[in-house]
Design a protein around this nucleic acid. Structure first.
Lengths: 139, 139
DNA sequence: TGACTATCGTTAGGTAGGCTAACTAACATC
DNA sequence: GATGTTAGTTAGCCTACCTAACGATAGTCA
C-alpha cells in the first residue's frame, strides 16, 4: 500500500470515529449537527439555498429539508430575492446566532478537551493538517 | 476563541465535509461505509459482537443490525462461543476479505488522489495529525 | 440448589440526514 | 409566445444511529 493510500485510509477511519463521538452530544444541544453546520454558512451573510447546498456539499433537496426545519424553529428567515422570484434568500435570525454559538460549544467541547490533552505539539499537528484537508476538499 | 477550540471546530467541520464526499462513492461499492468499517475490525481475527460495538464506538443494537446485514450478504459468519452461549463470535468470510479490499479501494481512492495533490509535506502533515486524532479518540 | 443479579445480544420503534425522481414556478431566448 | 433552463419543493426511499424493553444465559451466594 502506498504511503498516501495508507494515510488516506486512516484519515477516513479517524473522521468516522470522530463524528460518531460528536454525534452523541447532539441530544444535549437540541439542534442536530447538520443544521448547525449549515447555519454556520450564514455567518458570512445571507445566501441562497443553492449556495448553501453547494457550500455544504449536499444536494438541493437535502438543503431544502434542512432549511425548512431550521425555519420552523426560527433559526433563519426566508426572504425573496427582489430581482429573481425563483431564488430563496436565507438569513440567520438572532436566535440562530445564539443557538449556533451555544450548539457549537457543546459539540466542540469534547473534541477540544481531547485535543488539549495532546499538548501544544498535538494541537499544532492537527491545525496544519486541517489546513491541508480544507485545501484538499476545495479542489 | 482559544486556539484549541478553533482547531477543534475546524477539525470537526473538515470531518463532516470529508465524509460527505466519501459517501458518494458508496453506490459504486455496493457495500455501505459503516459495514466496511465494521468489517475491518475483523481483520485482527474473530471478535464478539460487543467487542465490535466497542471498537466501532456504537451501541450494541446498532452493531447487531450491521452484523445481521453483513451476515445476510455473506461478509461474515456467526459462530457460537463454546464456553458462553450468550456471546456471538464473528468471523470474516473469504468474500468479506475480498469485498473489504475492493470497497476500501473505491472509498479511499478519491481521498488519496486529493491527498497526493497536496505533495509530500501535505501528506506528512495529515499523517502526523492522524496519529494525534487516533490517540485523542482512544482516551 | 434455587433465587437473585449481571451480562450479551436482539427486537421494536424513533430520529437524522442523505439520495433520486418528478414536479411547479419563474426566467431567458429566439 | 413557445421552448428550454434553472431554483426550489415534494414524495419516497435508504442507511445509520439511538433508547427502551426484552429473552436467554451465566455467575453468585444464602
Amino acid at each position: 500500500m502506498s504511503r498516501e493510500r495508507e494515510v488516506a485510509d486512516r484519515l477516513h477511519s479517524a473522521a468516522i470515529h470522530l463524528l460518531r463521538r460528536v454525534r452523541r452530544t447532539d441530544v444535549q444541544t437540541g439542534v442536530p449537527a447538520a443544521q448547525l453546520s449549515a447555519l454556520s454558512v450564514l455567518m458570512g451573510g445571507p445566501r441562497t439555498l443553492g449556495e448553501m447546498a453547494a457550500a455544504e456539499q449536499v444536494r438541493p433537496p437535502t438543503m431544502s429539508k434542512l432549511v425548512s426545519d431550521m425555519e420552523s424553529v426560527g433559526l433563519l428567515r426566508r426572504t425573496g430575492d427582489p430581482t429573481d422570484a425563483r431564488v430563496v434568500r436565507l438569513d440567520m435570525t438572532p436566535k440562530g446566532r445564539r443557538v449556533l454559538a451555544k450548539g457549537r460549544d457543546l459539540r466542540i467541547a469534547d473534541i477540544e478537551r481531547r485535543l488539549r490533552a495532546q499538548g501544544p505539539h498535538g494541537v499544532a499537528a492537527v491545525a496544519s493538517a486541517v489546513d491541508v484537508i480544507e485545501r484538499m476538499l476545495r479542489e
